[in-house]
Amino acid sequence: MFFRRKKPKLEAKKEIPDGLWIKCNSCGEILYRKELAKKLWICEKCGYHFKIDSRRYVSILTDEFNELFSEFSPVNSLGFRDYEEKLEKDYKKTGLKDAIICGEAEIGNHNVVLSCMDFFFRGGSMGSVVGEKVKLSILHAMNRKIPLIVVCASGGARMQEGILSLMQMAKTSATLNLLADARIPYISILTNPTTAGVMASYASLGDIVIAEPGALIGFAGPRVIRDTVREELPPGFQTSEFLLEHGMLDAVVPRDRLKETLIGILDFFKS
């Protein structure tokens, strides 16, 4: 039949393995789990930011969080082979129905809408559910007249939802016009990685766009680019720092300073 894979795909290495001791993915330093958690999963030696899930971001950034739009789950509308199984597997792994959680949150003494993407669910890919929940988050921020913060982590569109996933770029970006018209601030936070369809839509469209250090950020994947241009990519290509240098980001802020930075921005807009 169709779609048989020649070799079984190697199971991706866990970003944060189980156990008391964790080796840094960047410098190789052996780190004590408890300490690493206290440091918000930043390597104390080299500053590498471990990829963390949406719940960790919520706990790092907020004082209170009431989830919204949890009633949505994905549909295999194209009848794409193996899609349900993949969704089920990631549901078991993460406890999430799709790659985003949204809610009303308290940060400092600010009420905001916070939407956090989750890289550990289908690589943070954007299908109809992610698009719909981002849209509803925008509309909720508009109705409640409170700022919107989106933490992005995504490899791009959800292939298994075909053209409908591409249209989520239009759905979210078009809706952001309404938020802009209502003069409600939107802060976009780019984490490792934020690429392709998400970067080419709402991730790029914040009134303020901030990235964590060392994140991979771009339109096309590095492998695709290397295959196209057939030359070595410049050092640090498509990192947060590279984008900052090329004028494509407002700021790079380490994870342990994100919350105070957000509070500062929210204070600025409020007064």
Binding site: M169, A174, M199, A200, S204, F219, E231, P234
Partner: peptide, 20 residues
Amino acid sequence: YPGIGAEERGQAQAIAVNIK
């Protein structure tokens, strides 16, 4: 186009802004 210059000059940003 997936190229070096395209990324340096913000391919994703340019598309995002157009869509909006």
